[in-house]
Design a protein around this nucleic acid. Structure first.
Length: 238
DNA sequence: GCGACAG
DNA sequence: ATCTTGTCGC
């Protein structure tokens, strides 16, 4: 089932407002919990796809069994694009629809794996941190590109990593999930430590560069967008 | 001041 | 993110 969402009341209309909200909410991020043990419980991937032409966004949440990586449940949501893409403000574009997809799940999500950053963010409050604070769930971010952070190239072996640095501060890790393949960029979102975040990502990536959680969510949100955008398939009278 | 910049 | 043909490989 796919739920439909509107842009929330009080959603920021300007970049200035959005940054102020980040600076306020970042104080609620919890960084001193180790997080759920890798390989146990549920791990949920979330992702979003856009059709700017039709002002439509589709989100998907896919729950996996952390031990087997089998799909336990999935949900989707569609809505209007709630904010333009601005580097550093990605969360305001994705969060309303992602929240709706998470709400539509029939079971607890467990650890949530986001596409993008958590702590590795200009104001230390990326998408994963934002989603964590709003839901109270443990979250991590896995990005496909380094933002504006520096890092050494990790050793070629699967599992090797090097710190993502903002000056002296380690805000995340470049993690090699497959031998000789470009690393992914892992950062903590909320209620999870960096070591465990990386351990989760490694377990979630037995075969491909990206975690199964995000691969599944990516495929599902694209399908949901196509369904919502294809004439004759959408809701409403006809 | 200018460019770069998660998705 | 999204736009996009053919092509190499399991």
């Amino acid at each position: 089932m796919t739920t439909t969402v509107r842009v929330p009341e009080g959603w920021p209309g300007t970049e200035e407002e959005a940054r102020a909200i980040q600076d306020e909410l970042r104080r609620r991020v919890v960084l001193d919990e180790p997080g759920p043990p890798p390989g146990t419980g549920h791990v949920t991937g979330v992702d979003v796809a856009y059709d700017d032409e039709r002002d439509t966004v589709a989100a998907a949440a896919v729950v996996l069994d952390a031990a087997t990586l089998e799909v336990v449940a999935e949900a989707t949501a569609v809505g209007r694009i709630s904010f333009p893409y601005v580097p550093g403000l990605l969360a305001f574009r994705e969060i309303p629809t992602v929240l709706a997809a998470l709400d539509a799940l029939p079971c607890p999500p467990g650890l949530v794996v986001c596409d993008g950053y958590g702590l590795a963010h200009p104001r230390r409050f990326g998408l994963a941190s934002h989603l964590g604070v709003l839901t109270g769930l443990p979250t991590i971010g896995v990005a496909k590109n380094p933002f504006a952070f520096t890092h050494a190239d990790p050793a070629p072996a699967r599992g090797s990593s090097s710190p993502l640095l903002a000056g002296d501060e380690e805000v995340g890790r470049a993690l090699r999930t497959q031998e000789g393949v470009k690393p992914v960029y892992v950062s903590v979102g909320h209620r999870v430590g960096l070591d465990r975040a990386c351990a989760h990502v490694l377990r979630l990536s037995p075969r491909y560069r990206l975690p199964e959680s995000t691969r599944r969510a990516d495929a599902l949100c694209r399908r949901a967008l196509r369904d919502a955008t294809t004439p004759g398939t959408g809701p409403g009278p006809e």
